[in-house]
């Protein structure tokens, strides 16, 4: 059997490394019967188009940023809410597998299945010429963001004007002062922006983003049990390890920026609590509409003994 896996990031991105490892593991675990064919760098599809093609037979698996699945099923947005998940929660295997099951249950009627999550990054603010130590310091700034609606609302209530802009343009725009900052990952800071963004401001957990491992349900269910196990086991092996490796890499990248002279501040508990309560207000729209989702999510945390 052939498993077509597509991705929009460059072949040099670490995500490709994990895809290659996934391919090797699946081949080994299925005794060569499942062959994973990887197409990177948007050669075939960007992640949104690939999601749309799941179920037509053109693609079988995609690992998109979880926000993208909101265009299919808004309830999956729970994982993208500010402060929804933390590194320690996702390192808990009970919670991780429970969350996959919960999120998957929302998209299964749409003939999709979610098999797991990978860590994308815990996003942070990178500013050109203003030092930020508390939320008020961000007032009135133009900041390049990506992200869901709750997130945009939160930005607006901080009196930030969110700007939508291609990732390729943000570095120039920041250098020329067209924007004051970007909301990005440590890798984005170190590799795309560099010291042009001298000031870093990090509120842990404010926007811990994830990749969802999404598979065509009809196709997956039609596989023999051994093949399905091979795929599921490969993910179970890679996902927790990936979480820790990428977290460590991000910490290294931040340290690298500090060594280059960047000024980096992390919100303390008190400041973090203020961000939480602000985010809480904006999540109310989500919780009003999908109250049962919040409830299920919290129950899962309680069952596994983790919370953020």
């Amino acid at each position: 059997t052939e498993l077509v896996l597509t991705s929009e990031v460059a072949t040099t991105h670490w995500k490709t490394r994990y895809m290659n490892e996934f391919a090797e593991q699946v081949a080994k675990r299925s005794k060569g019967e499942v062959k994973v064919k990887i197409f990177t760098a948007g050669q075939l599809y960007n992640d949104q188009d690939a999601l749309a093609a799941l179920g037509t037979g053109a693609v079988h698996m995609v690992w998109p940023v979880s926000v993208r699945i909101e265009t299919i099923e808004p309830r999956t947005g729970v994982i993208n809410l500010p402060f929804a998940v933390s590194d320690s929660m996702m390192n808990n295997s009970c919670f991780m597998s429970g969350l996959s099951g919960l999120m998957s249950s929302y998209v299964e009627p749409r003939n999709l299945r979610i098999l797991g999550f990978l860590r994308t990054a815990d996003l942070m603010f990178v500013l050109r010429d203003r030092e930020v130590k508390r939320m008020e310091d961000l007032k009135g700034m133009k900041i390049r963001v990506t992200g869901g609606r709750v997130f945009l609302e939160t930005m607006r209530s901080l009196q930030i004007s969110p700007v939508s802009m291609a990732a390729s343009e943000m570095s120039t725009a920041l250098a020329q002062g067209a924007i004051d900052g970007v909301f990005t990952s440590p890798a984005g800071w170190a590799e795309m922006i560099g010291i042009t963004g001298k000031y870093g401001w990090y509120v842990p957990g404010f926007s811990l983003t994830t990749y969802s491992i999404v598979v065509d349900k009809g196709w997956f269910d039609s596989l023999p049990a051994t093949h399905r196990t091979a795929i599921v086991d490969a993910i179970a092996d890679i996902s927790p390890r990936q979480w820790q490796e990428v977290k460590a890499e991000d910490d290294t990248l931040i340290q690298k920026m500090i060594d280059q002279g960047a000024v980096f501040h992390v919100a303390d508990d008190q400041e973090r609590a203020r961000w939480r309560s602000l985010a809480q207000k904006n999540t109310s729209l989500f919780s009003e509409r999908y109250d049962e989702v919040i409830k299920q999510f919290n129950e899962l945390g309680a069952r596994c003994g983790v919370h953020n």
Partner: peptide, 15 residues
Amino acid sequence: SDGVPTTVIAQTAFK
């Protein structure tokens, strides 16, 4: 080609 449904023609043309 194996494993390439005709609908990719429509998907690709549109995108």
